[in-house]
Amino acid sequence: MIPHVFNLQNCLALSLLLVLIGSFGVFRRHSLIMILLSVEVMLNGVNLSLVAFNYFRWGTSETSHYLYMLSIGVAAVEAAVGLSMIIVLFKNFNDITRERISRLGERSA
């Protein structure tokens, strides 16, 4: 007998785990591109929770499918702006490691 796993709580747990994994990556990674990539992992989890809520609870209209579309549109713009900024940074610093590009901050007098 196969246990019943395809339900709302498992989908939510999966999506929250993805968000956690992604935020772990945001804190841990040093390369700016990898931080953006970790944010994409988080966003993937959020999208999953949106669609799961719609299917299991509010199946009268596909509202969250539309929210999903908005979210990937925003993700595309954020990726485009972020990546073009990273290219500019690379031109200026020849590096994209976050500790090594850092010039701002408290000045030790």
């Binding site: 804190f27 990674r29 040093h30 990898m34 931080i35 976050r98 500790e99 090594r100 901050g105």
Partner: peptide, 18 residues
């Protein structure tokens, strides 16, 4: 990139790197 970075201030990107 995972190696410990040389130089640069540790407080960099403090909001993330708490």
């Amino acid at each position: 990139e995972g190696d410990a970075p040389a130089g640069g201030s540790e407080s960099a990107f403090t909001g993330l790197r708490g």
